[in-house]
Nucleic acid binder design. Structure first.
Lengths: 208, 208
DNA sequence: ACGGTTCCGATGCAAGCGCATCGGAAAAAG
DNA sequence: CTTTTTCCGATGCGCTTGCATCGGAACCGT
């Protein structure tokens, strides 16, 4: 057997470089040459790991998505004793990427969301991540409001509340990045929304 | 006086072309040559109207923002007899750009939001638009919940509710574009949120 | 040690980009 | 009709991009 290389590891290493560059100059400013330089490899290596640039970006998106979802899960596991309500608060705060140290991830995420609007491949990867997060939210909401989910099926208003929460966190993230909101304003909005959730769990049902 | 040309009109014409292209291929796919072709003018004309490409994009963003805000205002004026509550519903629905015929605007908007995260010039233009919409929302919310705004100053929870509503609409728009939500799901989420707004107007205050 | 694989760094290439340039068309004023 | 000023279409330039190519270095089983 000839030379062997940890391909998956290198892929992640390259994905990190893509993130750094996308954070600084946006997704448009990501070129193969710059990525290679940032990842401390040659362009040839990058081309070997990813057949095309799109493949590289798609992998990077998946990588970031995994990281965020993983962090949310870790946050939940590290504080299992509390109520489902406060757990949901923590999870939502993580997803909103409000903390300064996650600003990079937030910018990368936003860049990919915009790109996904015109790239079906990216959109598919993105949808998978959103579905996972929404399911997680829905579980927590159903549990916190007493009606336990059965076989992974939540009452429809829990699904809807989860959709709302996910959209809200995404919107808040974007508004913070643009500078329309400060992180603490966004934090306030998010938690006010969550508080409101418990005070009227089941009323007001109409429309699809 | 020599030849005279409606510069502002041509600028708008070019901005429309930018929108069409951004809708199809994303903001990255917008080149001066393509814009010129789509706008039925020569590249020279485009260069005369906008000194640089960034200037062109910035103008286009302002143009789209104006159009959306204008449509929301028109929607409000066309149905002034109803309650502030239902007016807010209409306004929010417009902002969320859920209708299929506004999908183009939505994609353009999202593309600019992502770009603004790395371009202070675009971010400034965008902030102005968000501020206008948020103020509009806050007015309606304050009016609907009885506490009239005085001298354009709303109670803090109206401001916060407006921020939440704006972030929610933006998030929903993005999720619809990506295909994570259907338009009717987004519609349902939005109106459930609005309904919840009236049922508990002032409680749950903490954090900044 | 050595042959066979796998890897990769350097280089080349065609295409496309934003922008600068400029000669001449177009139009009001005399 | 001539002049003067504004406008713009065509063209060229320098640069960057993603990708293809390939000779040789690196490595492992034998």
């Amino acid at each position: 057997m000839p030379k062997q290389v940890d391909h998956e590891g290198r892929r992640r290493q390259i994905a990190e470089a893509v993130c750094l560059l996308a954070d600084e100059r946006g997704l448009e400013g990501v070129t193969l040459r710059d990525v290679a330089e940032r990842a401390q490899v040659s362009m040839g290596a990058v081309q070997r790991c990813f057949r095309t640039k799109d493949e590289m970006l798609n992998f990077t998106l998946g990588h970031v998505g995994e990281r965020v979802t993983e962090r949310v899960r870790a946050r939940l596991l590290s504080s299992p004793a509390q109520s489902a309500g406060s757990a949901l608060g923590y999870a939502a705060t993580e997803v909103a990427l409000l903390r300064a140290e996650h600003r990079t991830e937030a910018r990368v995420w936003l860049a990919f969301v915009a790109q996904a609007a015109v790239s079906e491949t990216l959109a598919a990867t993105l949808r998978a991540n959103y579905a996972a997060l929404q399911g997680l939210f829905a579980d927590l909401i159903a549990e916190a409001s007493g009606r336990r989910s059965v076989d992974g099926v939540q009452p429809p208003d829990a699904q809807r509340a989860a959709r709302a929460l996910l959209a809200l966190t995404d919107g808040l993230t974007a508004h913070v990045l643009i500078g329309h909101l400060t992180p603490s304003e966004a934090h306030g909005v998010l938690h006010a929304h969550l508080d409101a959730l418990w005070k009227q769990p089941g009323g007001a049902e109409d429309r699809a």
